[in-house]
Design a protein around this nucleic acid. Sequence first.
DNA 1: CCATCGAATTGAAACCTTTCAATCGATGAC
DNA 2: GTCATCGATTGAAAGGTTTCAATTCGATGG
Lengths: 344, 344
Amino acid sequence: MPHPRDGSGRSASVKDVALRAGVSLGTVSNVLNRPERVSADTRTRVEKAMADLGFVRNESARQLRAGRSRTIGYVMLDATNPFFTDVAQGMEHVAEDRDLSLFLCNSDNRASREAAHLGHLQEQRVQGILVTPVDPDSPTLADLAGRGTPLVIVDRTRPGAAFCTVSVDDVLGGRLAVDHLVDRGHRRIAFVGGPDSLGQVRERLEGARQAWREAGLPEADLVVVPTTALSVAEGRAAGERLAGLPARRRPTAVFCANDLVALGLLQQATSAGVRVPDDLAIVGFDDIDFAAAAAVPLTSVRQPRAELGSTAARLLLAEADDPAHVHEQVVFEPELVARRSTLG
Amino acid sequence: MPHPRDGSGRSASVKDVALRAGVSLGTVSNVLNRPERVSADTRTRVEKAMADLGFVRNESARQLRAGRSRTIGYVMLDATNPFFTDVAQGMEHVAEDRDLSLFLCNSDNRASREAAHLGHLQEQRVQGILVTPVDPDSPTLADLAGRGTPLVIVDRTRPGAAFCTVSVDDVLGGRLAVDHLVDRGHRRIAFVGGPDSLGQVRERLEGARQAWREAGLPEADLVVVPTTALSVAEGRAAGERLAGLPARRRPTAVFCANDLVALGLLQQATSAGVRVPDDLAIVGFDDIDFAAAAAVPLTSVRQPRAELGSTAARLLLAEADDPAHVHEQVVFEPELVARRSTLG
DNA sequence: CCATCGAATTGAAACCTTTCAATCGATGAC
DNA sequence: GTCATCGATTGAAAGGTTTCAATTCGATGG
């Protein structure tokens, strides 16, 4: 019987272990935390007692004593978007190396959920919080940082802010996408994405406009098709709206604010008999794995997803370990990955 | 100045609040937990003190006292598979309703990671653990349940086990897929998936074989193409192996163990000039959003993903709240969703 | 004016771990 | 035989919250 449940229902504590092993409570703690200070004999005795009792360390008590937990948290914007799960993967590796747990939370694009999660994480006294915020200018974040909780913003930048940020140059990303389309000869294009409360959307569009302008092309030939979210469904809907445009205004290429939208659009286009890329070229953003795997492989602006996450996590821990830490704003450069959806 | 940081660096405790509000520590606790027992006057005074001090409740201490936390955990098999994030979404809703936090962990198909996560969750004294295990027969799980931690297995069934399970009838799913292909006139098909250490893979194949046999078709005409994982990349690789088969053995349809594999296969086929479904029909499994969004929308066996998650979470909480709880084995029926990848 | 009652508030104990100064015992040096 | 030393072990305190029995105070009824 490997795990005799004691009648009390309560799980065994160090005290119970000490009693059973016939040592003091401090010794049990030593076995747990500084085994080298305990004689081999006592150690095995204590370890046996632990096994017999099915002892599991109570992390709450440990944290209470230590003042902080062995956990960091990441509040992500959209857990169903593979981009963010890949970012989280990068964080996870760093956490694993340091033997920390990563607490994943999904704000699902809602400020209220975000606030709730941030509150819970604070109550847990996590070592620090990573967040891809609904709104990076929200005072909640500044408050948090001001209160002393290490905080790193992921996928947004905030120059001069009271915290580190790790992001990708979205304006540059937008330029890359549009430069590529212009190079391929397109002279009427659309930008699909929204809501523009999302900084990612605004900046990618801004970059697109810059590139378009610098190519000397008329503003009116860059149509903006707004969506209410960055999802596959919205991409499909946008495709329908695009198909409804009079032929002379219909673009020959589309730059989508992310790959989910691009995949939705691609599907709608293909099923409507529009050939990609011959009739319509498509560029996405993020370069999630599904982009390369689409039946017409998607040209996309690649972000170093895992690196974004691991860098953020490392900065967070640096700040948590060193109060004199100087905040950094890391900006990665995106890179265009050309595939069939624009190459024919 | 909304959050004056006290010189100590330590964050404010109930004691500090009590001192500042000129009340006892018990009263502060009452304001927090039973506000109706406190006079309006005192209450506002205490609330003001909390705001001034930027008081944040210390969850570790609360948990220590309460004996258990306000958290449940889900250890998922593959966080990058949208199927599991959708399942998690279902759990999240239940947790949100009960004002609990859901701690998401990714075992990434590795038993060692799974064990580490399970250990951490226990140490946190979570109310219960949801897990899609690498191996549902692992003694670790039985131990956990035996030790008294409420446990629910998700996406696997284990008749007569010492815990609840919530799953989908994978054998039936396999049958549905193959019945459909047989109905569409296919007489030589392949099953693509692996490793068969995964129960999901074994059972879906088993169902496929049953349906094939019952249709009176020769065993040899159901080719099994094993993969080392259920990923897009493996699907692509399998596609190449399939293309390498001599024409007379090449199947006219493929049933993939999940949608990721199917999407990879679809991509490989299309880029190799194989027309889907005319030259090759494809059926996936899970019906993730990307399945419908593929450029050739994918026929797939739908599982009630969110419902799987919410049911599991509800069972878990039922067990956590009632020690006399009787374990249940819930099995959902999957459903075939036919789309262009098999319909032409 | 006293007794009683109820509402509001208090103070101490408990939860479990970690830490650290103090103690103990044995070994080796003189 | 005594003293210093060193390793091993101990015991008590601290950390923040919650709970609950006990207390206070003002008000009500007699």
